[in-house]
Design a protein around this nucleic acid. Structure first.
Lengths: 175, 175
DNA sequence: ATAATCATGTAATCAGTTACATGATTTT
DNA sequence: AAAATCATGTAACTGATTACATGATTAT
């Protein structure tokens, strides 16, 4: 009931966790963790050291309810989003300011500095990157059409940005 | 001289810091920090609490040389990339595996869960996002043409991915 | 029976954040 | 003279990481 945190914005992982809970319904922390593990985004490892403390944080803030489901001998915790959690999730989800911020992309970071290489090295690096970016995308798990559309769109957007920058690098007389 | 770290891969911030050093030449930690602060990527805050420890880490690993430049009374440290640092930076820069990994993008994370909203809410959210994404990009600092090309390319790639996903959401009968 | 998977967690560590703290130099 | 900027750092905290540790249940 302590809403100490409800004024603070949810972090990205918290938001994503709450949204996942809303999506798949009540589940164990373990199931939540597996979701993160198999998600196409490789940014979060979905480690126990991240998930279990996260769940406790959300529970302490009254955003999820954790009820013990001790059928049989095995302890098992079922998580469910509370009303406050649903509200917080929606706030997170529709936070346009947060959404429009540029995140972090290792490709972008490197493209920024590619000019440090000699023209020959640049060509080699660009070729290697192109190969890596064109590699067939692994289907990460049983996904929905929507997830696949998003994933494909993102991959091809990155490729497009890459090609634009590559073209610019190629027809620029050396720095 | 201790190369304890040379086998470990450089983190993204370490790589970016070394690359920045290579780009602008010897400078103070403060100048390095200002670079991060004014960079168009908003992922790193470029705080003193990040930069000064980082610099010490790199110095301890023999990747940068920090020489005291006590002209006058004010203590001032000049950082310079060592040969080992240059090599490490190149290794980081041409690490195709790292570069091709998807990073983290708050827009992508949210697009993943937009299906949780009602159709009406979705339309509203998409409109708000579109507005935010179409907002004129602030010129973040005196940049080079290359930085601007990259920035523009990235922004429009994100917009393209967004529109693709938005179109898919719009002509999908509700979930 | 054995192996895989489900399920829970903790400990040490790491790399960042914000806020605090100080003071010199340069510009207005 | 005052304000802005240059310049250095520390402290408390946060939220991740990997590795460790345990044990029940289910599938082969």
């Amino acid at each position: 009931m302590k809403k100490k945190k409800s004024s603070d914005r949810a972090t990205e992982l918290e938001g994503a966790a709450m949204a996942t809970l809303a999506q798949i319904g009540p589940c164990t922390p373990y199931a939540l963790m597996e979701r993160f593990r198999s998600s196409p985004s490789e940014f979060w490892s979905g480690s126990t050291g991240a998930i279990y403390p996260l769940v406790r944080r959300l529970a302490a803030a009254g955003l999820v309810e954790a009820r013990q489901d001790g059928q049989g001998k095995r302890p098992r915790e079922i998580l469910e989003l509370t009303d406050a959690g649903y509200t917080a999730m929606k706030t997170w989800l529709t936070d346009t300011g947060a959404a429009s911020r540029l995140g972090f992309d290792p490709l972008r970071t490197r493209l920024l500095f590619l000019g440090l290489l000699s023209k020959a090295e640049q060509r080699k690096a660009l070729e290697a990157l192109r190969d890596a970016l064109n590699e067939p995308i692994k289907p990460p798990a049983p996904t929905t059409p929507h997830v696949e559309v998003l994933h494909r769109a993102w991959i091809s957007a990155r490729r497009a940005a890459f090609e634009e920058v590559a073209a610019h690098l190629e027809n620029t007389s050396d720095a």
